[in-house]
Structure formats: structure tokens, C-alpha cells
Design a protein around this nucleic acid. Structure first.
Lengths: 248, 248
DNA sequence: AGTCATTTGTTCGTATGTATC
DNA sequence: TGATACATACGAACAAATGAC
């Protein structure tokens, strides 16, 4: 939400309230992770009605400065920002470290299922696939939620090994795919969906970046598809200029 | 906005109203560009208060299905979706045509100003720069808003020629920069800012993709910086795999 | 150019539901 | 279980933007 706010907010309006709260947060009146006073108290302090206060809090939550939790309270959000080189075959943990943060990851689910139609189309084959969902974090702050799809027939031991913290690259390599290629990576952005917002600790309708890529063997047969959803406020992509030859 | 909505909306809630409106739109009760009935009428029709209706409309506007204009009405949004290859030196108009739409563009402003500090830092020099703001459209729907900064000393005639619909590439070329290079392109996403939302016909807090790039001559001196803001819902980027060698 | 009806935007008060602790 | 705190809802009034006359 928020709005055009061209001239300056009228005294007492929700825009003004949002601005006052934002400046208090900016000034450090409450630290990241702190809980704000309850609505009634804030209403009294700011001299506005509950509707205006809630509109203001809603805007700040929507802009990522606050995190609201029903029944618990309203909290000041934490911040992290990574720079991620797309295309380079660098590992998530290395990039996080290079950005000065401590990496970690969680496998949220790993199961073998029948390929949905759209996955079968992308992989060029149906049948059972491994679906692995993982969360990547930097300093304990969730950054990306990755869903990968791999033909079960080609990688029978993939789930076991991935759960043992082996990377997908390593698993490809051990299946004789050291020279696997990558089709074009697609990048788009959209508001976070409910389960993404939950896992990435975002408000709904906060933007996420989505990167989709298909890995292929040397004969251009698809061997894996993955879709990564990134909290847009916590990452920035860079794309090496092909002409500059950033490759080794 | 919106919410977790885990179990399903309670009858009469704004979520239910949003779902009913969305399904009516989906069913084609109102066509893209059409104006919805006024709030009071919709309230009566749906059997809810204005508050709930507005919450529902707000969610649909926020999700890009509706466009609300104070004093005018609430309209069903139009849709466009381009696929844009990052890195390839293709012209905007060619890409739009390749996607089956009719391209057009507007120069919103072109002026020579003193370089702000951050621009001077990027360009590696201060002094006067040309700042050109242009809007790119597909089928009359705005897609991207580009702001470019170029050293005035190096391109004295840039504004005149750009206003005459010459491309930046052509102007570079005529200054003996046919082999100009491009530093890494940075991609990020965030909610639209007020002037961006206005120019791109987006709701505030709708996501935009931002691409930033620095052009350099053969000696790696910066000759231009541009920042393009794209309506995320109307574009998707693709990045050619450097190893596949998609270049000519 | 100005007036006016229309339509959405904002704010208040109040009551009740629901999640968390 | 109860208390706390946020979520949702209705009603009403006025402000601000738009568009037509």
C-alpha cells in the first residue's frame, strides 16, 4: 500500500503515523527483533484512532520494516543483503560467506513422487522424480527456498546423499556428469505466496525473485530442474557480461 | 496484505468476497479494461459492508487483477508478458515484436544536470551529465521505465539525437564506440515507488524488477549508466548460459 | 473556466472473532 | 482456562480526485 503522498501527509493521517513510526524505528527506539507496544498504547501515544494506526502498521509490515503476528505482537524486522552471481557455478554457502554472513541450510522435504505434468514436460519424461525442497539461510535469516526435481531413475541415491549434505553438483559429478550444462536461466519477480512467505519470514505480497533453470547432460537431455524463490529484499543478482569473459 | 488463510475463509469475510470477485472476473463477467459497479452497488450485490468490499478490492488490486482510480472507478486490469534476454544486445522494440506485441516508447524527460554523487562515483567522473528518462510500452501497456546517465562532455549531441528516436547504441557507435562493453548487470526486485507505479500503471507495492548496467569503452572507462525498472508481472528475464555460447 | 454530481480514500467509533501465551 | 493482542466486521461521515456539463 502506502501511496503517492506528494505534498506531505496531513497531521494525524495514517501516512503521518507510518512516517513517525518509521523514523522512530530508524532512530533505534526499538531494535530489530523488539516487540512494539500494543495497539491501544500506540494509539494513545500517537493520538490517533486504531484504524489509522493499523493502516500505518500494515504499510510498514508490507514494506518489510515490521513483522506482525496475531496474538503475539508487532516486531521490528531484521535485515540481510547478499550479492549473488547468476550463472557462475558457485555454491550458496561460498557466496554467503563472501558476503560476510554465516551460511546454513535445511532440507525441508525430500520425497519421490510422480512427476506432475508441467515437470514432466520440462524434464522431457514422466515417471517418478525426486522433489527436494531446501531453505538457504544467512546468519539464520532465510534467504532462498529452492525446489528441485530430478528423475528418480537416473539418480536412485540422490535423496540419501542430498540429505547427507552433498551438493547436487557433486551428485551429478559422481554420475559421470561433470560437464553438465545449463539451459537459459529465467528470472522473474512476483509477490510471495503463502508457504513461501512463511518459510522466508516475509509478509505476503512482499516481492520474491524467482530463478528457474534446467540442467542437461552433454546431449542436452534434461537431468534436473530447479526453481529458487529468493526474498527480494535480501538478495541482488549479478550477471557477468558474456563478452567480458568472466569465465575461467 | 492478504493473509495466511490456512483453513479457508469464513463465510462473509473479505477473503470470500475477493474470491467471488476474482472468479467473476475469471469467468469474464467484466472484460479487461471494464469498470466495475460502484462500491455501494457491489456491497449490496455481495451482501457485505463497504469495509469488507474495499479490503477485497484492495487485495485484488494488490495482486494486479484490478486497477483502482480515485474519482473514476475500479477497472479490470490488462495483461502483457514479455520474455527478455538479458545480455544480448537486442533492441527493446525487437523483443517486444518477437513476443507478439506492438512496441512504442516515450521520452519522458531529457535534461543535462550536474551528476549527483552516486552517479559521479559510478561513472568515475563528476560534471554535467545527460539524464534521460524513457518509457517502453508493448501494446500501449507500459513495461519499463529507464533512466540513463551519460557524460555530457563525451556526447554533446546525445539529447537531440535521442529525442529523434535514435538508440543509445547507435549514438555510441557514431562516437566510435562500436565495441563498447558492459560491466556486470545487476538485477534486483522491490516494490514500485510512487513515480514508477504512476508511469508503469501499477499499484504501489506491486513488485518491479530493476536492472542496472554500466557501459564502458574498450579501456573500461564508463561511458554510461542506466537503470531500468520493469513491471514484474509483465516481463521475465532470461540469461543465456555462458558455457552454451549463445552469442554469435 | 467553473460548478457539481459521482466515486474512491480516509478516519472515526464500536463490537466480536481468533491466535498466542 | 483465562488474559492478552491482533483480525475482521459493520456503520457513518467527510475529504479528495475525477469527469461531465
Amino acid at each position: 500500500m502506502l501511496d503517492n503522498n506528494q505534498t506531505g501527509a496531513a497531521r494525524g493521517s495514517w501516512r503521518d503515523v507510518a512516517a513517525r513510526l518509521a523514523s522512530e524505528i530508524e532512530a533505534g527506539r526499538w531494535k530489530p527483533g523488539d516487540c512494539l507496544p500494543v495497539e491501544a498504547e500506540l494509539c494513545a501515544w500517537l493520538g490517533v484512532g486504531r484504524h489509522s494506526l493499523r493502516r500505518a502498521i500494515s504499510a510498514l509490515a508490507s514494506s518489510g520494516q515490521l513483522r506482525v503476528q496475531q496474538g503475539a505482537g508487532t516486531f521490528v524486522a531484521q535485515r540481510v543483503r547478499l550479492t549473488y552471481a547468476i550463472g557462475a557455478r558457485t555454491r550458496f554457502s561460498d557466496i554467503v560467506r563472501a558476503n560476510g554472513h554465516v551460511p546454513s541450510s535445511q532440507i525441508l522435504s525430500a520425497e519421490t513422487v510422480d512427476a506432475p505434468d508441467w515437470v514432466a514436460t520440462i524434464l522431457g519424461q514422466g515417471g517418478p522424480v525426486h522433489r527436494i525442497v531446501a531453505l538457504g539461510l544467512a546468519d539464520e535469516v532465510p534467504v532462498c527456498l529452492t525446489t528441485g526435481w530430478y528423475p528418480a531413475a537416473r539418480f536412485p541415491d540422490l535423496i540419501q546423499r542430498r540429505c547427507g549434505h552433498e551438493t547436487i553438483s557433486a551428485i551429478y559429478t559422481s554420475h559421470g556428469l561433470a560437464d553438465y550444462e545449463r539451459r537459459d536461466t529465467a528470472i522473474s519477480a512476483r509477490p510471495a505466496r503463502p508457504h513461501e512467505a512463511r518459510n522466508l519470514a516475509l509478509t505476503l505480497d512482499r516481492p520474491v525473485l524467482v530463478s528457474c533453470k534446467v540442467d542437461t547432460d552433454r546431449t542436452h537431455i534434461a537431468i534436473g530442474y530447479s526453481e529458487a524463490v529468493w526474498a527480494a529484499e535480501r538478495v541482488q543478482f549479478t550477471i557477468a557480461n558474456p563478452r567480458n569473459g568472466a569465465r575461467t
